[in-house]
């Protein structure tokens, strides 16, 4: 067998994945925290004040990376859900379900910070703008996946049902975006453009990109630590989990 394929098969085995993820996790957390610190420093101290929005524009450094992540995580979840449904790989089920709460968290942050940003800029906490509405629907999709996963008793069946829902959602998302766009132009014309074609200052751009990369690492770290716990729960009858449980017995 080709070594890459062999490695892939090994990765699918829970104990191997558990150990590998455990070795990667400290690095991922360190990279994520360093990236966040650098990005926040750049966003709060280095980036110059926006000539139109003043300092309120600094919300962009948390808002936009979270908006990107909310979609990225959904695609990740749906791709893993697809793999789980077609090839029935246990690891993919676990990864897809571990990604859902993280994606919901990013979507929530995106909505909350967006609304906080909207108040001083547009004078309102919420507008039925196409992107905002799509993001809200995305949050509902995440909550639906999480809710379905926790409502079904059997863990693997629950993961497969929720993965299926995630796949339906991925078909639904572009339709929602298109329909909301159409609806929006019908009702209120063009909305406020945050950036438009204007060029963004390099001193604003690098913190933004740093935050985007840092949130990717944060997602990876959170995903692996969630997947590790889920595997422990899923395989709690197996010997390797028993050994871990006994090794970590608190000294009384």
């Amino acid at each position: 067998m080709n070594p890459l394929l062999l490695w892939f098969h090994k990765l699918g085995s829970p104990p191997y994945f558990y150990r590998l993820a455990g070795r990667l996790l400290p690095w991922l957390w360190a990279l994520a925290l360093a990236g966040l610190a650098l990005g926040l420093y750049g966003g709060l101290f280095v980036a110059p004040r926006d000539y139109q929005q003043g300092d309120a524009f600094r919300i962009i450094f948390v808002h936009v990376p979270c908006a990107w992540m909310s979609l990225f995580v959904y695609f990740f979840m749906a791709a893993n859900g697809f793999i789980a449904l077609v090839w029935r790989i246990k690891l993919s089920e676990t990864l897809a379900m571990a990604a859902a709460p993280i994606g919901a968290a990013f979507t929530f942050i995106c909505l909350a910070t967006g609304s906080i940003w909207g108040k001083p800029m547009w004078g309102t906490w919420w507008t039925w703008d196409a992107r905002l509405t799509s993001e809200l629907v995305l949050l509902f999709l995440y909550l639906g996946v999480i809710g379905l996963y926790h409502a079904i008793e059997d863990r693997r069946q629950a993961a497969r049902a929720a993965a299926f829902l995630a796949l339906i959602g991925i078909v639904n998302l572009p339709i929602v975006h298109f329909s909301v766009n159409w609806w929006n132009t019908l009702h209120q014309g063009s909305t406020v453009k945050l950036f438009g074609p204007s060029l963004i200052d390099a001193r604003m751009l690098w913190p933004l990109l740093t935050m985007a990369v840092a949130t990717k690492f944060l997602f990876a770290a959170s995903l692996l630590s969630r997947a590790r716990v889920d595997l422990l729960e899923l395989e709690s009858g197996k010997d390797w989990v028993r050994q871990i449980a006994l090794a970590e017995e608190p000294r009384a």
Binding site: A56, I116, W117, P120
Partner: peptide
């Protein structure tokens, strides 16, 4: 606004 967004 800014600090509450970062806090969230």
């Amino acid at each position: 606004y800014v600090w509450s967004a970062f806090a969230i």
